[in-house]
Amino acid sequence: MGCALKNRLRVLRAERDWSQQELADRLSVSRQSVNAIETGRYDPSLPLAFRIADVFGLAIEQVFEPDRERQTG
């Protein structure tokens, strides 16, 4: 059993006034992907997580952190 991730995507987007589609375009992924990551339904791969952090100009740990309350199967 692994540990899931928490993320600050919604807050970071709001700070920049970006829609999910705008963030998706910057990441070259679908809007569904951004929505699934933002709502915690899908944990991105390490390369995609680094790309997300890059888009916001932050370190990866400033965007993602372990969610010790929610475990993954």
Binding site: S28, V29, S30, Q32, S33, A36, I37, Y42, P44, S45, L48
Partner: peptide, 8 residues
Amino acid sequence: ETDEFMRM
């Protein structure tokens, strides 16, 4: 497919 979520 390059979008990993859609591929999954």
